[in-house]
């Protein structure tokens, strides 16, 4: 913090009155323009001025489907606000939607793959490639061990009851499509569910 230079009392009162917006408003200046200025606000610049990217986002919380404008600078989100064009939210957001920036930048945001070995009492970091290979291997192993081609009566079922998946209501349609396609159409999983029943 810069030390404030000591000035005479009359100096300070004088500059305060000149800087104070109320007398200027009473004098007829608009509170939306000149009369809203102060020595502090004159030095401020809109945060969005520095943004190098803006995109249209949809709020990730409930299903109302509010549109958001998302501003970024140097690959980092700096601001999220309601999109005034949207016929749903017309620029507004609720407390959750307004916290979208906080969600994206929260201190505990997970950014690495964590692994817990059987019977271990701690997490350990693992490389993504290793985890992907291991998950593919486990998926195949469990599928192969539990796969049923035909029931005893001859009905072809082509399914596994050994692997399940839960989740989807927070995801994109494209993601749900590939999940259902791979898990059901490829692997034969039948325990596929999401938040629709919770």
């Amino acid at each position: 913090m810069k030390r404030i230079r000591s000035r005479s009392l009359s100096d300070r009162i004088g500059s305060f009155v000149r800087d104070w917006s109320v007398p200027r408003q009473i004098a007829g200046q608009s509170s939306a323009t000149k009369a809203a200025e102060s020595s502090l606000s004159r030095g401020l610049r809109p945060r969005l001025e520095e943004a190098d990217t803006v995109g249209t986002n949809i709020c990730p919380y409930c299903a109302v489907g509010c549109s958001q404008l998302m501003y970024a600078k140097n690959g980092r989100v700096i601001h999220v606000e309601g999109d005034p064009r949207s016929p749903i939210n017309q620029g507004t957001l609720c407390p959750k939607g307004a916290a979208t920036l906080g969600l994206m930048t929260m201190p505990d945001r997970l950014d690495k793959v964590l692994y817990r070995a059987p019977h271990s009492d701690q997490w350990e970091e693992k490389p993504m490639d290793w985890a992907m290979d291991r998950i593919a291997h486990l998926t195949k192993r469990t599928r192969d061990e539990t796969f049923v081609h035909k029931l005893p009566d001859g009905t072809i079922v082509n399914h596994t009851l050994g692997v399940g998946s839960l989740g989807g209501a927070t995801l994109d349609n494209e993601e749900n499509y590939l999940i259902k396609k791979l898990f059901s159409g490829g692997l034969g999983m039948v325990w596929i569910e999401n938040q629709a029943r919770v």
Binding site: G55, T56, I58, C59, S67, R109, D172
Partner: peptide
């Protein structure tokens, strides 16, 4: 396995809202 997932704004795609409306969201970062 606990794996970090991207949020809307970090990926492209569509959501379908409560009144059947599909709205695309952009990948910004």
């Amino acid at each position: 396995f606990l794996m970090p997932g991207s949020l809307a704004g970090e990926k492209d795609g569509t959501f379908t809202n409560t009144h059947r409306l599909l709205q695309w969201h952009d990948k910004v970062v």
